[in-house]
C-alpha cells in the first residue's frame, strides 16, 4: 500500500512540474490536474512492484540531503578533473590501459548502480562488468598505476577515492 502511495505521488509531482504555466489555478489549469491525477493513479497501480523493491530506506530526507551534497561537492569536482584529464590524453595520446577488479563491499543494488555511474563519470575509469554474486566491479582504467597492481583485487582507493564511503552513507 505504501509502495502504491509513493509511486502515485511521485508521478503526480512529475506531471505537475511538466505542465506548469498551463492555466489560472495557481500555475495549472483544472483539466491538467484532473488528467494528471487519473494517469498517476493508473501508473501507480501498475508499476508499484517495479518501482519500490523491498525496503523504504530512501524515504529518509537526510539521505537525500547527503545525496545532493555529494553530487554538488566531490562528484562535480571529480567530473571536472576527469574532463581535463581526457583533454590531456586526447591531445598527447599517452595511454596505459587495463581492466582491473575492485571490491567496494556494497550490498544493495541501488548502491552498486550509483557507484558504477560515478566511476564512469570520474577521472580515467569506466565500469565494464559486474559480478552479481559478490558485487565486485570490473573497471577499465586508462592509466594503470604500477603501485596499485601489487595486491589483488586492487584497493578501490586508487580507482575511485572515497566514493564508496559516501555511497554507503546514502544507500545503506
Amino acid at each position: 500500500m505504501l509502495a502504491f502511495v509513493i509511486t502515485t505521488v511521485l508521478c503526480f509531482i512529475t506531471y505537475l512540474l511538466l505542465t506548469t504555466g498551463s492555466g489560472t489555478l495557481g500555475l495549472w489549469s483544472l483539466e491538467e490536474i484532473l488528467v494528471g491525477a487519473i494517469l498517476s493513479l493508473i501508473v501507480g497501480s501498475l508499476a508499484r512492484t517495479i518501482f519500490v523493491k523491498d525496503n523504504f530506506r530512501m524515504l529518509n530526507p537526510v539521505r537525500w540531503i547527503i545525496f545532493i551534497a555529494y553530487v554538488i561537492g566531490p562528484f562535480f569536482v571529480a567530473m571536472a578533473k576527469a574532463n581535463v584529464d581526457v583533454a590531456y590524453r586526447v591531445i598527447t595520446g599517452k595511454i596505459n590501459p587495463g581492466i582491473v577488479k575492485i571490491s567496494p563491499d556494497l550490498k544493495t543494488d541501488f548502491g552498486i548502480t550509483m557507484l558504477a555511474n560515478s566511476i564512469t563519470l570520474t577521472p580515467g575509469t569506466l565500469s565494464v562488468d559486474v559480478d552479481e554474486d559478490k558485487n565486485d566491479l570490473y573497471v577499465h582504467w586508462i592509466n594503470v598505476k604500477k603501485k596499485a597492481l601489487e595486491k589483488k583485487p586492487v584497493n578501490y582507493r586508487y580507482v575511485c577515492g572515497k566514493f564508496p564511503n559516501w555511497i554507503r552513507r546514502i544507500a545503506e
Binding site: P97, G98, V100, L149
Partner: peptide
C-alpha cells in the same frame, strides 16, 4: 583492449 597492461576480466 588494445595495449592492455592487465585484464582481470
Amino acid at each position: 583492449p588494445v595495449r592492455a597492461v592487465v585484464d582481470d576480466l
